[in-house]
Design a protein around this nucleic acid. Sequence first.
RNA 1: GCCUCCUUAGCUCAGUCGGUUAGAGCAACGGACUGUUAAUCCGUGUGUCCUAGGUUCAAGUCCUAGAGGGGGCGCCA
Length: 506
Amino acid sequence: MLQIQDIAKHEGQTVTLNGWVESKRTGGKVAFVTLRDGSGFVECIFSLDTVGEETLENAKRLTQESSVQITGKVVLNEKQEFGTEIHATGIHVFQLAAEYPISRKEHGVDFLMNNRHLWLRSRRQWAVLRIRNRVKFAIHQFFQENGFVQTDAPLLTGNACEGTTTLFETEYYEKDVAYLSQSGQLYAEAIAMALGKVYTFGPTFRAERSSTPRHLSEFWMIEPEMAFYDLEMDMELIEAFVKYIVNAVYADCKTELNILERDTTLFENINKPFPRVTYSDAVKIIQGKMNWNGRNAIDTLRTQLAKVEADLQAKNAEIAETEDLLTKGGVSKGQANYYQSKIDRLKGEARKLEDKSKEIPEWIDASLNFPDGEDFGSPQEKALTSLFDTPVMVYKWPRAIKAFYMKRYEDDPEFVKGVDLLAPEGFGEIVGGSERETDLQTLVDAINHHNLPMEAFEWYLDLRRFGSVPHAGFGLGFERVVMWLTGVSHIRETIPFPRYYGRLFP
RNA sequence: GCCUCCUUAGCUCAGUCGGUUAGAGCAACGGACUGUUAAUCCGUGUGUCCUAGGUUCAAGUCCUAGAGGGGGCGCCA
């Protein structure tokens, strides 16, 4: 079966395509039907001269999302969005679709989420899911090409392993409680001691009641774990890995990025070295006490604020101007409609800018007054990453705010060998990694210090009893990466059927 | 969990100081036109104004409580 993505190779030939009607425009003697088949989009032209009256009438009657088979000749045409079109000669209708709820006009988020099963057919969602696929493939390519073995950690576990987040609970037969896994890392460490370099890639569950555009209750995580790696090697791997993914998407997803109107500056900058900053320096940068390449984080936020305020003024001026045009009279009905929808749109945009103009001062405040020693919150990540046009690595973190298994610096034991990779332009954390503690007693002390149940970690401690070696790894949030690369404003768009606080259907 | 904004037609929204019959666009349907790509033209319909109380001669509009949702923060990947 021929797919739309391959039709250019069949120029001049008559082909048969199966798909759905994305949109339709009709004239007296002509009908334009945009067909989508999942692989791409193509406009099919039915003109009276070639198809005759009956077929033209059938084409004119098509409704949005009707399922059809269209036969016609492939013609190259530069004026077309994707360079080709079909001069139709015949049509078979599988089903004339009922009135379709999603139009080309804008819809609210809640409505779209309730219709997620249909929303997936929209162009932007199509583009996002194709990029998701490319990222997933790139991850496997990178690791498989670099001597890693893909492996799996259990999804059901008997204890809340790191003891930090809230987990989903379920009955495990009659007697026990099982928890849905929040991380496969500790298991990956055990497997790495068997197979050397491994990575897991599976779903993860967190029962946090987070209501933000960056959180899901069910998401996918990639967790490599490497025997005989130290922090330095870990950071090199993270950098090479992220570059590989970003380059793959840029090389193979031009159409998708175009549909998403993704600014490609990020992709053009990705091969520059990622800056490495210690936590302590990052704190100074966030507080505005230290510059990076002559740029100041607080000043950058203030510049952003000034821009938002200027944009807001311009937006309001445009609204007033358009309202003037509308009330002046002498406008045709079509023009009036246009002005009215423009005003509605501008008002929505102005409201968002207004919110933003109130938020940025709060971020500036939270950064200026950030206490050294605490973990970064979202305002701090925004302040820091707004200085960079590539991802930035923050390493050497205070022991108190990081997980118990991270290895301490021998010469500075209040700090641990952890690293976070923060995506630029205010996006924030996409990778968290570390060199793991190898010493049995240090680990036992850390478990006690965190009040974790020792018996649950006995198997983990065995890894330090039998051939303990330096090792390191990291975790990458899959949907976070897809969100970052596609530029969608909410993580719920990066997975076909998202699960998050307040959403379990469809 | 906290702060904040919102809820009016299938969808996106307007609705002024509380005032009598609640509006527009889109979508749908009928027609005209068109190598068209969310700005062509004419015509046709649509309401539990989120819910429950309250104030008032009068509530979509004001007050209280509740429900649902957006954005920000926290928690995190």
